[in-house]
Amino acid sequence: MNVGLYRSAVGMASQQRQLDSIAANLANVGTTGFKRGVTAAHEIEVQRPRGKVRGVMTLAEVDFAQGNLQRTGREHDLALYGDGFFAVEGPDGEAYTRDGAFHLTEGGVLVTEEGFPVAWDELSGAIDPVGQPLKIDETGAVRQGIQDIGRLRVVDFADKGRLTKDAQGLWSAPPGLQTVPSEAHVHQFALEESNATGVEEMVAMIGVQRSFEVVARVFEAIDQTYERLTQPF
């Protein structure tokens, strides 16, 4: 069979995945701290016994670009400006998030929306759950009244591409991935919006749709050639 027929089918499959990714970005335009996925099709060459075969591979990366900060006025809403993550104590060890909509529990523990405790560097005091409001500065240092509570653990990674999203929507690091100090500023009373925007994703979606159309035409053309070949004279 004609190799072009298969290759166009692979092309269509790749565009389908790109559309899946765009759909996920669009669905999450309202998700706090969401980072959009970017997919790209790459041409690859594969060595086979009877020579090289060319194909298409879809790669997905996460665009860790900064999202807009939105002021909420809520005491336990924190946003990061710059590269970095809030470290939290996830179900399988330390996990990371950019979603800083935290809550204070009855026991004075700062937790995420899902109830995972926020991780600290230099925890020196306990939060009084019904005491004075918390004051959190740009370095993540937390004070309550005149009492120093500690510093929130904010970390970054040299190679963020290796982070994966787990079932809780948190980022987790594979073993051996080193954390580096984060340069990010912590902003209290604000949340980071999703960095996926409707306009950008719509443009990408139109691109994918048109490419799909073109590949489908190629598929059709090849198919028609076969049809002519198989028809009796």
Binding site: S21, A24, A27, T39, T58, A60, V62, G161, T164, K165
Partner: peptide, 8 residues
């Protein structure tokens, strides 16, 4: 980078 695609 791998290929992780969100589901919504």
């Amino acid at each position: 980078t791998g290929l992780q695609i969100g589901t919504g």
